[in-house]
């Protein structure tokens, strides 16, 4: 039974994702097709999202993605290289990179060991800490204050994993709500169903900036982990990885990263003109100084 099921499902899935076997590298593929396919998100503010033009993403990660496109054009001597966009979700991003639909995904994807089994990451493009947002009046200052309380986090994130692990290990008796996206997590917090919202700090600032009364909320608590975001590309493609990494490193070395950073984190951003006011952390400054493609747990 188990074997038949396995064979059957493998066959079904394999045919559903029937992409040509990727014997050639991504650069060859781009060269022969004349197109590079970029994976992007729809609501990872301010990393990769859709604002005014539904056909073209914007964001911090997207700007770095475009730096890579420039580098590919130069490398392949194809100034007229076409760019095609492909929207991905947290569930589809890995398979779409693997099966050749998307050549490069830059959004808010954490580099971790589980994902490294499936895809390769570029050098880190951002570093966040997982922290809490709570009402200023709630008295919640840090994680120990959450004992026996309702706490919300977004389903499928590292924060969810950390929060559940912390709850089990330290027997904190928290009720953990896994909301479907960041917007709904914040709604749970705002409507009083949860006293705190645990998430990547950059995203917490993003939610705070969108709130009706941003002044009511505070991001607080000692970071429970640091997460490094990276761009995803197919495994075992050293030629393409070198182009990607070199393009990002060049941005770091030239200091252009500071301009891009302040454009997305220290200034008003579309569509509502929110200013996240999220200064560059010491951890990320260190990453910019010494770029690498390790996950946070490997460092």
């Amino acid at each position: 039974m188990r074997l038949t099921t396995r064979l059957l499902t493998t066959a079904v899935i394999a045919s559903a994702f029937a992409a040509p076997a990727m014997a050639e590298g991504t650069l060859d593929k781009i060269k022969s097709s004349g197109v590079i396919v970029l994976g992007h998100r729809d609501a990872s503010i301010p990393f990769s999202y859709l604002a005014n033009d539904p056909s073209k993403p914007i964001g911090y990660s997207h700007d770095l993605q475009l730096k890579v496109v420039e580098a590919v054009k130069k490398q392949l001597k194809m100034p007229n290289l076409q760019v095609r966009y492909n929207l991905v979700t947290s569930q589809t991003r890995i398979p779409l990179v693997q099966n050749g639909t998307v050549d490069l995904e830059c959004g808010s994807t954490t580099n971790n060991l589980e994902r490294q089994k499936q895809v390769t990451f570029s050098v880190g493009i951002f570093e966040i800490g997982t922290r809490l947002m709570a009402a200023k009046t709630s008295g919640v200052k840090d994680f120990p204050d959450l004992k026996g309380k309702n706490v919300v986090t977004t389903a499928g994130t590292t924060s969810e994993r950390l929060l559940k692990a912390m709850n089990a290990e330290k027997q904190m008796g928290m009720n953990i709500i896994s909301a479907k996206d960041h917007g709904e997590s914040f709604l749970m917090l705002e409507s009083g169903r949860a006293v705190a919202f645990m998430m990547d700090d950059a995203l917490l600032y993003g939610e705070m900036a969108k709130a009706k009364n941003p002044g009511n909320w505070v991001v607080t608590g000692k970071p429970q982990s640091f997460e490094i975001y990276g761009c995803m590309l197919r495994k075992e493609d050293p030629a393409f990885k070198k182009v990607v990494d070199d393009a990002i490193k060049a941005t770091y070395k030239s200091g252009e990263i500071n301009k891009i950073y302040s454009k997305w984190f220290m200034s008003p951003v579309p569509p509502k003109g929110l200013n996240l006011n999220f200064p560059m952390s010491d951890e990320f400054k260190e990453l910019v100084a010494k770029p690498n493609d390790k996950s946070a747990e490997q460092m």
Binding site: I13, S90, Q91, R115, A155, G156, T157, E160, A179, K180
Partner: peptide, 24 residues
């Protein structure tokens, strides 16, 4: 139910996919 945070079968499936990266 997964959309309001109830960890039923689909929610657990998505969570497993996210945590393990063994989506299929």
């Amino acid at each position: 139910a997964s959309l309001i945070g109830l960890m039923e079968l689909l929610a657990q499936t998505k969570q497993t996919a996210e945590f393990s990266a063994n989506i299929f």
